[in-house]
Nucleic acid binder design. Structure first.
Length: 697
RNA sequence: GGAAAGGUAGCUCAGCCGGUUAGAGCACGGCACUCAUAAUGCCGGGGUCGAGGGUUCGAGUCCCUCCCUUUCCA
């Protein structure tokens, strides 16, 4: 009887493209899911875009489109990533869907019937110009602790103090700059502090094997908190205008996005069932039957930043909503990914753009393997180090693993017409393979992928050692020892088959080529193939290429489509080193392809206005006419130019540079100027006849 | 401020309930080999296991203090 597993990854917020953190989580879950499927377990792997909330509403408004349009645009981009990284989701949905509306309203009604919902008046900042209540992040002001200006309403980025928006000195609305008013409004609350919830959560958290110990500790801390740290009830409503799901019995109020986001897991599952894909995947029951069945395992993969929601609110909501809803069997938490030791954040992005990774032709399976080698079952962070990436992939995957097939297959093809033959008793061989498979199986199950990869590579080492010891290239010279040669190579190729089976969850594409191409199967590998001796092979075809370190330079290049936020992080060490590396490469012999050059959008611009800025020694504020639009650009040319002399002249601007927030405002491009040692800058200009907006090619 | 995780060779990490001379991969040096899209094998250098104290016959492994890093605080 196979396990019936419903797996999700955290829902990505639909206001932008995936970053490397998303991809890491999906790869982790995908490896686990593929491993389960290979064992014959029934897995339903779904996810969805988290579409609601004020940030999306406001972003859409700023772009002059509806939130639905914004979400649809982001969603349209998802498949490139999902397919590109071999992520085998069975279904991808959205929280802005009829299923989610129905489920959210249903769960709310049940919680209300259980006496866990109440109303309370809340005083909150209100933007009088915009006519809306302001989320904490949209109130800014001076930090009450260190007096840094322009800090967000929840915490100070300079000194780290956490506070309420009302603690800010001289608060203002980040939307309009208006002084916000304190205004009262009735909000709906979920009574998490109810003794029933607390008792249930104690029990749920304490179930052995359900959660990682560190996660239980963290959740218990919140649960057992007293005084200022006491477990608080949860404010689940927001007032209009809000992009979300309306609360049925509270006109003008919507569910807070974090209420309907996890319910989106179920909405995605329901949509998956409705689409018929579940049935195609071997599940004949209805969505509700499946959900309610006691043997259904509901498993969530999440990052450590959202433990609170997934280990307290979410199980409590499900438990007290009652059947068919069931509590999660496991919530598996992973840490963050850093790039060259620099932390990344959702708002700033990171130096490593997944889309860029794919666009420059890097192999998705390199990244899958690298991450697998680093991932374990704990919540520790993991670092993406370019040098290590190259070493790991080239040494393990190419040098050890792929090389086995490459070196052994040629003998078999040349001398034995593809036929494998083992001398002597093969039971010991198969048994040893079974032992290794069992070891690796346990590690995969526990998400100890790093350990699994170590054990797999240790096995690869043994194959290479044995191959070396028996010197098949010497045997090949002696006709009389053909049997021995065939045995050596057959054993190596069986070992290669075993390795391929064990690596299938991590390297699905390579594994597929090995199964179908080399071993001539009409299907991909399943786990039990580990203990089946192959009897023949097809001629070896190249399976995987090495990483060229120069690709890493290209990866960390800036000005990347698909990573609009990344450039803003230029102040971080990672970006700085990457930029330095790029600069170093540029001054060397690095050659730019024409495609790479075309990515840089150079245009002619007319300087409409040039102004000095109070407090800036080097910068001038330029207002540029680009033909179809006007832009503000800050240029460090004050030392060489009098603002008045610039007005009206033509120059060249990098038009697709990511906007960069500077001390004096946002710079929307870069004007080009030459400079040498102690000389310059000298602004570039265009000859007569050029007009603003012309593209430079 | 409160809390959590972690500090082991140049790098990335293994070291379970304390037990012989602290391990692996990568990198580095040397040798061997030539079957493999320069891939492999063997040998070697290199660590007072963050610091100090304690428990113990014995501690990287347990306890205390301190230092450092990272993260979380709805």
């Amino acid at each position: 009887m196979p396990r019936r597993i419903f797996v999700t990854t955290a829902l990505p917020y639909a206001n932008g493209p995936f970053h490397i953190g998303h991809i890491m989580e999906y790869i982790q879950a995908d490896i686990w899911v593929r491993f389960q499927r290979m064992q014959g377990q029934q897995v339903h792997f779904v996810c969805a875009d988290d579409a609601h909330g004020a940030p999306i509403m406001l972003k859409a408004e700023a772009e002059g489109i509806s939130p639905q349009q914004l979400v649809a645009r982001v969603a349209a981009d998802r498949p490139r990533y999902l397919q590109g990284f071999h992520l085998s989701f069975d279904h991808w949905h959205s929280t802005d869907s009829p299923e989610n509306t129905r489920l959210s309203q249903d769960i709310y009604a049940r919680l209300k019937a259980a006496g866990l919902i109440y109303r309370k008046s809340v005083e909150q900042f209100f933007d009088p110009l915009k006519g809306m209540f302001l989320p904490d992040r949209y109130v800014k002001g001076e930090c009450p602790n260190c007096h840094s200006p322009d800090q967000y309403g929840d915490a100070c980025e300079v000194c780290g103090t956490v506070y309420a928006p009302t603690d800010l000195i001289d608060p203002y609305s980040a939307l309009t700059g208006a002084k916000p008013l304190l205004k009262a409004s009735e909000h709906l609350f979920f009574r998490l502090s109810d003794p029933r919830c607390v008792a249930f959560l104690e029990d749920w958290l304490g179930t052995p094997g359900r959660l990682q110990p560190q996660v239980v500790n963290k959740a218990r801390e919140w649960l057992a908190g007293s005084g200022a740290q006491a477990l608080a009830d949860w404010d689940i409503s927001r007032d209009a205008p809000y992009f979300g799901i309306p609360i049925p019995d509270a006109p003008g109020k919507y569910f807070y996005v974090w209420l309907d986001a996890p319910i989106g897991y179920l909405a995605a599952l329901e949509s998956y069932f409705e689409s018929g894909k579940a049935a195609a995947n071997g599940e004949p029951r209805s969505f509700e039957q499946f959900l309610a069945a006691p043997d259904t395992e509901q498993i969530h993969f999440i990052g450590k930043d959202i433990i609170y929601f997934h280990t307290l609110f979410w199980p409590a909501m499900l438990r007290f909503a009652g059947p068919p809803y069931r509590v999660p069997a496991h919530v598996y938490v992973h840490g963050f990914i850093t790039v060259s030791g620099a932390k990344m954040s959702k708002s700033r992005g990171t130096g490593l753009s997944p889309l860029r990774y794919l666009e420059i032709g890097m192999d998705a399976e390199w990244l899958r393997y690298f991450l697998a080698a680093r991932l374990n079952g704990s919540v520790e962070d993991l670092d993406f180090n370019p040098d290590d990436f190259v070493a790991r992939v080239n040494s393990d995957l190419i040098g050890k693993y792929v090389n086995i097939a490459s070196r052994a297959a040629s003998f078999i093809t040349r001398s034995f017409n593809g036929e494998l033959k083992f001398s002597g008793d093969t039971r010991e061989l198969v048994r040893a393979a079974g032992d290794t498979a069992a070891l690796v199986q346990k590690s995969y199950e526990n998400r100890e992928f790093g350990r699994a990869m170590r054990d797999i590579m240790a096995f690869a080492d043994r194959i290479n050692q044995e191959f070396d010891a028996r010197k098949p290239w010497v045997l090949a010279r002696e006709q009389s020892r053909a049997g021995e040669l065939q045995d050596v190579c057959s054993r190596a190729l069986y070992g290669f088959k075993l390795l391929s089976v064990l690596l299938t969850p991590v390297l699905p594409a390579v594994s597929g080529r090995v199964a179908r191409g080399l071993f001539g199967l009409d299907r991909g590998f399943v786990w039990s193939d580990a203990q089946v001796l192959p009897d023949r092979i097809n001629p070896y075809e190249h399976l995987m290429t090495r990483v060229d370190p120069r690709q890493l330079d290209a990866l960390f290049d800036s000005g990347v489509p698909g990573a609009p936020a990344a450039n803003a992080a230029a102040a971080t060490p990672a970006a700085a080193t990457a930029a330095a590396a790029t600069a170093a490469a540029a001054s060397g012999n690095t050659v730019l392809s024409i495609d790479e050059f075309r990515r840089i959008e150079l245009r002619v611009a007319r300087i409409v206005r040039a102004e000095t800025i109070d407090g800036a020694d080097k910068l001038l504020k330029l207002t540029l006419d680009l033909g179809t639009e006007t832009r503000t650009v800050f240029a460090g040319i004050k030392s060489a130019y009098d603002p008045a002399s610039l007005t009206g002249r033509l120059t060249v601007v990098v038009a697709n540079l990511a906007p960069r927030k500077m001390k004096f405002g946002v710079s929307e491009g870069m004007v080009l100027a030459a400079s040498g040692e102690g000389q310059g800058p000298f602004l570039l200009s265009a000859d007569a006849g050029a007009t603003p907006g012309m593209r430079i090619t």
